[in-house]
Amino acid sequence: MSFQAPLATSRSVTGLPTGRLAIWWVVVSEIVIFGGLIACYVMFRLRHPEWGEYASHTSTPAGALNTFVLLTSSLSIVLAHQAAAAGNLVKSFRYIWCTIGGGGIFLLVKSYEWTTEISHGYTLFANNFWSFYYTATGLHGLHVIAGMVIMAIISIGVRKGEHLPRVEYIGIYWHFVDIVWLFLFPLFYIAK
């Protein structure tokens, strides 16, 4: 079934392209989802000074490495957008796949961490700290996976030179996922 975008999609009363306006609203809704979870965690964390002890069992080097990986992947997706805007499709395509690779490394490190922690007995059920840890990082990990899948789909369009603004939109989403991690990192890894 061929799909033709309606006339409505091409209108831009606010001066923002419709796609970018929508992705900002997606970010708004994601802010409250992650923010709600983090706020619940912070309330418990302030209540329980002893949770600092549990937090010392998370691996700061692994978390730091993942922060670095995500920051770098943010750089590569913004470069992909820059390249797409300049019309350099091959370069843009490569940068997108660099970003997907970054997401892959992030997930590998994450799964290494989880395996180590679970094998030490710190499972989802160990106590509420670990429940929050797995819920928050798991939800974040799902967003990373979703971002990678969407980027892979977009990269096909980029090679054909279609839907180039989508590179910018997925970039905004990816930076948001990055920012969420910037807060999860100190919350679960550094603050002891």
Binding site: V28, I33, G36
Partner: peptide
């Protein structure tokens, strides 16, 4: 949109409580 976010996070937590046995 602005109000449902924390509940979505909370629903995930409740679902884990129901199905997986978190607390």
């Amino acid at each position: 949109m602005a109000s449902v976010g924390p509940l979505i996070a909370g629903a995930v937590m409740l679902l884990f409580d129901q199905v997986l046995g978190t607390t």
